[in-house]
Design a protein around this nucleic acid. Structure first.
Lengths: 205, 205
DNA sequence: CATAAATATGAGTGATAGCTCATATTGAAA
DNA sequence: TTTCAATATGAGCTATCACTCATATTTATG
């Protein structure tokens, strides 16, 4: 049986040409979400802005959600890589400095493209775990979790809760600042730093 | 000139019947956003769940965005009223208690319907100020702003920044908890309380 | 060059969403 | 009861969106 089920239409790019096409599509998707929001986020619009035909898009992505999922995944993996790098670079150094650097990364990630970050977050939840999205996200959490575990701090709640809350409050503050049109990143860093350190109970320097 | 521009088709309900219709529509809209998300949020679906015809919906709302805007506005006004009530009730009492009560209100507002709260927030920003949404939101902010102003606390940043950040971090923590499927509201309150009080520099009790 | 695989194209298709409008029903005032 | 405004109805129009497919072009390889 299984006569001719159209075999999951997603070719893997092998030539440089098609790799560029896929990259252009993902970049276009990001830019459209950023500037037009979900309403303007159509596959035809993405293809057009990427400078490729709609047919090309569907050669590499079986459907629209797959484009979104790829965007989310790329985004998460970039973030994970940066945070792991910072974590390595600050090994042995004071925790305050490491937290500062991590905040810098996180803020940079969502502050100058607030709408995009927000919508990626939304779509990530909508798509759920069914697309294998969670792996990179867990690596991100793990960086902070183990940093806190090794810190010797007397945490106000259990380790997982504190980890989640630190992310969440930093996320919340950044989100609000971004949507509010703020531009002073240094100032934003200072505020998040204050919020995080005081939540953790790190004594003032 | 101006021959017969279809005069902004929005009737104001005058009989009890139509008031009930409008309420049913808004309630249905909320429930659909909560359970189906933006994908299932169509005017036809809203009308169906409200138990009215699609034509009735368009008698009272000129378009889909107007339904959303009304939902947002109702939501904001409920929130504003509750916070103002708490603010009045706790006048003269210790600021810690008032903050607790305000957190209770805020958490209650978005914790048990996290998806709805999230999407309302998103749509609110998408619609922008063009719908006169901001008035109730400003009242909400004002409650906390004046509470802080009268507190005599030595704030870590300027008043408006602190106000915004307190909202944002509480919002972030609640959002994450809600999406994470947590159910223990008391515990969540404690965490937000800790985050807010330590951010504000209120000494431990 | 020859050939086949990889890649690109874009008009077209089916489904659905927002919204209209002609008509029907209900309620209130006289 | 008569009459008219208020309210309700839902089939159907139009636009748009996700997605397909037959065809054309480009590249790799021998």
């Amino acid at each position: 049986m299984t006569p001719n089920l159209p075999p999951k239409p997603r070719k893997t790019p092998v030539q440089a040409r098609s790799t560029a096409t896929v990259e252009a599509i993902l970049e276009a998707a990001a830019r459209i979400l950023e500037t037009e929001g979900l309403e303007g986020y159509t596959t035809n619009a993405v293809a057009k802005r990427a400078g490729v035909s709609i047919g090309s898009l569907y050669q590499y992505f079986p459907n629209k959600d797959a484009v979104t999922a790829a965007l989310v995944q790329t985004d998460s993996e970039t973030m994970a890589a940066r945070m792991e790098e910072v974590s390595r670079a600050y090994e042995g150094k004071p925790i305050r400095d490491c937290i500062d650097a991590l905040i810098e990364v996180a803020v940079c990630h969502q502050f100058d493209r607030p709408m995009l970050a927000r919508l990626i977050d939304l779509e990530e939840h909508r798509l759920g775990q069914d697309f294998g999205l969670s792996e990179a996200k867990q690596r991100i959490v793990q960086v902070v979790r183990s940093l806190l575990a090794q810190s010797g701090l007397d945490l106000p709640f259990d380790l997982d809760t504190v980890t989640q809350d630190v992310f969440a409050l930093a996320h919340g503050i950044t989100d609000a600042a971004g949507l509010n049109g703020e531009t002073d990143r240094t100032r934003l860093n200072a505020r998040i730093r204050h919020a995080v350190l005081s939540y953790l109970g790190v004594p003032a320097s």
